[in-house]
């Protein structure tokens, strides 16, 4: 800013106070992450005796050793990958063609279908009827049930449809002149032109799949099928009140706290890897989908 001299002393003080308050907020956002990381790298004894507050104490990888040698951790991690990729692909395979068809003005019943989809934003049957429906469809305790049952939602369909509607007519006409079929038109014209919207929706799906725990917890019975978040929930939330388990983990090298911290770090790392992309597209997507029809 070249207008530096224009600021009075009051303005400079204002700027400093603002920077300090904002800095405090940023630090308090960051602190839990740093603490969890430090706890996961400290010895169990150091954490239990309250000596870890910021940096690792008695640095050791014992907690990671314990976590990474737990077979269930890997089973759950693998399941999460299956649900994340399978679910996202399923979502795109259902919603892209559907949203494309809805964006065509000549489609019969278009108004009705648009209203029927938007209606589900306002009203849904709720937890129990959804659960009983999954049961009737034979999708309890099924990996496929998790992948298909949450494949679409109105918000993402509307976001994609709006984007397809904004593609200029001339592209479509040119392709039709060349004798392109509807499928070719979608594949070769609309999908490449709508990449930002599609990436946004894909990332929304990836993040919600990676982080989702509730329905996986309700629908899946078998230990072999649970995703990472359900595994985390069992270890951190359910077992935390279970003192016997907590004390069984307590050795000099690791403790309940260091082990749970290590699991949390391990599950956050993939999020951190896609975060730079996600941030860029999400900030666009949130503005794209929110206040528009």
């Amino acid at each position: 800013m070249s207008s530096f001299n224009l600021y009075s002393r009051g303005d400079k003080i204002f700027g400093w106070i603002n920077a300090i308050l904002l800095g405090l907020f940023v630090l308090s956002t960051l602190y839990p992450f740093i603490y969890i990381l430090s706890a996961s790298l400290s010895s169990g004894a150091a954490v239990t005796s309250g000596r870890v507050t910021l940096w690792p104490v008695d640095m050791t990888l014992a907690a990671y050793d314990r976590v990474l040698s737990d077979r269930m951790f890997w089973v759950a991690y693998g399941n999460t990958f299956i649900y994340t990729f399978g679910g996202t692909l399923m979502s795109l395979a259902i919603m892209i063609p559907g949203a494309y068809a809805l964006s065509r003005k000549r489609l019969r019943g278009r108004t009705f279908l648009n209203m029927a989809i938007a209606f589900t934003l306002w009203f849904n049957a709720g937890m129990i009827p959804f659960f009983l429906n999954m049961r009737d469809l034979g999708l309890l305790d099924s990996r496929f049930g998790i992948i298909i049952g949450f494949a679409a939602n109105a918000f993402n369909v509307i976001l994609l449809r709006n984007f397809f509607e904004a593609v200029p007519k001339s592209f479509e006409e040119a392709a039709k002149m060349d004798g392109a079929s509807e499928l070719q038109l979608l594949w070769k014209v609309f999908i490449p032109l709508s990449k930002p919207a599609i990436v946004t929706v894909a990332l929304l799906c990836v993040v919600s799949r990676w982080n989702g725990y509730f329905w996986a917890m309700v629908l899946l019975r078998g230990e072999e099928k649970i995703p990472l978040q359900v595994y985390l929930k069992r270890v951190i939330v359910d077992l935390n009140s279970n003192d016997e388990f907590a004390s069984s983990l307590l050795t000099a090298r690791y403790s309940f706290e260091t082990v749970t911290s290590a699991i949390m770090v391990a599950s956050i790392i993939p999020v951190l890897i896609i975060y730079p992309y996600a941030q860029r597209y999400f900030t666009k997507g949130i503005l794209l989908g929110g206040v528009k029809e």
Partner: peptide, 13 residues
């Protein structure tokens, strides 16, 4: 972008 399970874990911790 962090799951509620982890947030709950941090809070409990």
């Amino acid at each position: 972008f962090i799951s509620v399970v982890i947030v709950a874990g941090i809070v409990i911790n």
